[in-house]
Amino acid sequence: MEKLSIKEKKLEAINLNVFYGQKQVLKDVNIAIKANTVTAFIGPSGCGKSTFLRTFNRMNDYVEGFRKEGDIIVDGKDIYQKMIRVEELRKKIGMVFQKPNPFPKSIFENVAYGLKIQGIKNKKLIEETVEKSLKQSALWDEVKDDLKKSALSLSGGQQQRLCIARALALEPSILLMDEPASALDPISTSKIEDLIWELKQKYTIVIVTHNMQQAGRISDNTAFFYMGDLVEYDETKKIFTNPEKERTQNYITGRFG
């Protein structure tokens, strides 16, 4: 894999070890992720993909017993430093979860939420942003006539695209997605995949997935984890056709995990 210059690196983990209490869940992980690419994290259940993803926006801070060694660098800054305001960080890094989790508010309010908590009151700006974000997440045509309806009345696939729109409204530069399509039907899944493909122009995307075909279709690079180790990290093409490690080969061909 090509070496990245400092400027090209959007996200980076350096000698990262993560513990939950006594248990070590990530072991000496090193990775550098290039801007405007899609990176897939794959690996068997429990290998630490979600944990790793969540270190990039410090969502692990709330987990009891969480401890880390090593550094996480976002846009050239160590984000675990004392002076970093975690709320500011998270505005820059959108996150989409496995299970759609819209707020119990209207569709409009969901997308406007991020702006409102920042104290933005300009109605026109909020309306424009809501429309733009919903268009970006390919949901606008389906909901434009009932923006006032409760977000909970949408289907699962629509809710997930709403959650993506909600994240996009803050204009982040990074999007972290933890199995965003695992709870969805094939049509919604393909919509979300198309969406990821388009968003790549503007965002750096990291996506956790258990679906090998999906990883193959949408990602530029793939990282394979196994029991807390980053076993192999390379171009997706290479990982899926000619991986270096046998363990990767076995996982991809479905021989274990």
């Binding site: 709320e87 500011e88 505005k91 996150m95 707020f103 508010k105 939420y113 991020g114 908590i117 920042q118």
Partner: peptide, 27 residues
């Protein structure tokens, strides 16, 4: 209120107070 809602709110940069009042309380 499910943890996923809290995480959704924190993930967008809400403070604890904002999360409590804007998301958890209505839920």
């Amino acid at each position: 209120v499910p943890k996923s809602l809290r995480e959704g709110a924190y993930g967008m940069g809400s403070t604890r107070l904002q999360t409590s009042f804007n998301v958890i309380l209505p839920a």
